[in-house]
Design a protein around this nucleic acid. Sequence first.
DNA 1: GTGAAAGCGCTAACAC
DNA 2: GTGTTAGCGCTTTCAC
Lengths: 337, 337
Amino acid sequence: MPGINEVAQLAGVSTATVSRALSGNGHVSEATRERVHAAALELGYVVSSHASALATGRMKNVGVVIPFLNRWFYGAVLEGAESALLSHGYDLTLYNLSGGGDERASVFEHFLLRKRVDAVIAIALELTEAEVGRLHDLGKPIVGVGGTMEGVPTLSIDDIGVARLATEHLLALGHTVIAHIGGNKDSEMDFHVPSKRRVGYEEALVAADITPDPELFEAADFTLQGGYAAAKQLLGNPRKRPTAVFAASDEMAIGTILAARDLGLNVPGDVSVIGVDDHELSDFFGLSTVAQFPALQGRMAVDMLMDQLKPGHREISATNTALPFELIVRSSTARQV
Amino acid sequence: MPGINEVAQLAGVSTATVSRALSGNGHVSEATRERVHAAALELGYVVSSHASALATGRMKNVGVVIPFLNRWFYGAVLEGAESALLSHGYDLTLYNLSGGGDERASVFEHFLLRKRVDAVIAIALELTEAEVGRLHDLGKPIVGVGGTMEGVPTLSIDDIGVARLATEHLLALGHTVIAHIGGNKDSEMDFHVPSKRRVGYEEALVAADITPDPELFEAADFTLQGGYAAAKQLLGNPRKRPTAVFAASDEMAIGTILAARDLGLNVPGDVSVIGVDDHELSDFFGLSTVAQFPALQGRMAVDMLMDQLKPGHREISATNTALPFELIVRSSTARQV
DNA sequence: GTGAAAGCGCTAACAC
DNA sequence: GTGTTAGCGCTTTCAC
C-alpha cells in the first residue's frame, strides 16, 4: 500500500505538494500537477481517508438512519440519497433501526457519535431532543425527512393536504360514501402520518358537508395484506357499502382492489379506489394515487445537507420545506353513477 | 468535543489507560476502569474513529456493494447484513450500483479503495479479476453472495437445484406441460441466475422423459408486470396451454397468478404456479415457492467476513458455500387431473 | 510555486 | 496495572 511519501519521492516533490496536487487545494504548477498524478496512478495510490479525516476533521461520509430497508418506499428514498451522496463524493453509512429500542440507543451512542460521519439524515424517524442535542454538540448537521423536528431543517410532505387531495378527487367524482383505510397503532410511526391522513380525509368530507362516519374507517398496517383484510370488512358490509375507498398507502389500496375483485365488485364500476405513494406496482394495477417521489426526497435531503456542509453556511435555518406531491388519475377511480 | 486527554485528566490517569479502559484491550484495574468510564460519561466523550483507525489500521466498517435497493430481495439481504454487522460493532457503508458503468468504476477507484472499509461484501455482483486483485492488494477480505468468484469465498444458492426442485414438484403432481418464465437478456445478471434456473427446469423435465419445448418458455424481467405479460402469452395460447408454470421469481409467479385470473383460469384448478424466493407477498397469494432466505444470506456473509477479519484466520479458503433453500407448498399448485 | 515541520487524536510497544 | 512515547498518514500554516 503506497503512501503519500512514495508518491512524493517518485514525483520528485514534497508530500505537501502531492497533497495539494491531488486534493486541488492550494496552487501547484500544471507541470508538477501532472507529474504527481502520473506518479499516483503508477503506484496505485489512494489517500487514506482516516489520515486525511484526522488532519482535516472532515470525513466525507454521512450517516443515514432509516426504519425499514425492505419496503419499497424507504428503499427508494435510500436509493435517491445514495446516488446523490456519491455524486458529491460522500459515502453513506447505513443505520437501519427496524429492530428494538436498544438498537437505536446503541446506534446513537456507539456509532453516530464516533465522528465517523460528518452529518446525519434521519428518514421517517423523529429524533429526540437529546439525540439532536448530542449530534449538534458534536457539530454535526442533521436533515430530517418525513416530518418536522425542533431545531432541525426538515423535508416533509403535507400529509393532511395529500389526504385531502385524494378525498377531493373522489368527492369530485360524485362519491359521497367514502371509506378510509388508515393506520393502526403500530403503524403510527414517528410523525403520525396515519393520523394526519385521516384528518385530511375528514377535512375534505366536512368541507363537502359530509359527516365522517367512524364505521367507514378501518385500520391496517400499511401492507397489501392489511389493506386486503380491511377492505373486505368495508366492502363486505351489506348495510353500508362505500362506493369509494381512500387508502393511506398504495399497498393497502392494491389490497383493496384485490379484495373488491374477490367480492365480485368491479373497480371502478362498483367501487373507486385511490391510494398514496405511486408505488412501483400502482401503474400495473391502474391505481389512481397521490404520488410522492421518494427518490427525489432522498436527493433533496442530500442537497440540503450539502448546503449546510459548505464552509459559509453555518447558520442553520431549522425550517421545514414542503415536499411535492401530485394526483395521478388512472383507472381505479370513476364517476359515481 | 472532549478528547482523550480531558478524560485522562479528569480520571487522573494517562491517556494510555483511558484507551485501555475504554477499548477493553490490556489490563486495567476495576477501580480505574470505573473512574475512566465515569469521566468519559461525564464529558460525553466518544473516541474519534479516524484517530483510532489511523493508529490501528482497523476501521470497523465494511463496504456493501449491491445492485438494487428497492427490490424486496436485495433489501432483505441488506437488512440481514446490516443488523449482523451492527451486532459485531461494525458500520456498513453502502454502495448501490444500480446506475451505469462509470458509477461502478468510481465506486471502486474513489471509494472502496480509500481504506475506509476493512472488507467488502459483494451482493449479486461479480467483481472483475482486476477489482478483486485491487482489493486484495490492499489487504481487504471480500465475501461474495449470489454466485461464485475466482479467489473469493462466496455464498451462493444452487440455482440449478432450486429450479429442478420446483419443476420436480410440478412433475410429481402429474403435470407434463410445464411452462417456464425465466429471464431476458437484461435480467441476465452477473451470475447468470436466469440461465441456471432454466437449465434446472430442463434437467428436471429431461429426467422425467419430457422434451423441453421452447414454445413453453417466455422471458421476462423478474418483475410482477413482466411475469404477468409473459404468462398472458403462455396461458393465452389456445393450442398449447400449459397446466403448470414455473416462474424464476415469486414476483413473476404472482404476475402469472394475476394473468390466469384475468384469463378466467383457476389457480390451481386449471393451472398450477410455482415461483422462487418466498417473497413477502407469496403467502398472501397462496403461492407455492422454493424459499431462499435473503436476510439469512446477509447474516451468513457477515459471519464469514468476521472469520476472515479475526487475527488468526489469515488464509482465505476461497470456496463456495451452498445456501439453503426449501420447497414451500401453498395453494397455487395442485395435482393435474 | 514549493518545502519543512507541526500537529490531528488515538494506540501499542516498551518501560517501570 | 499504569505511564511514556513514538508513530499511524495525511493537511496545512509558515517560510522561502
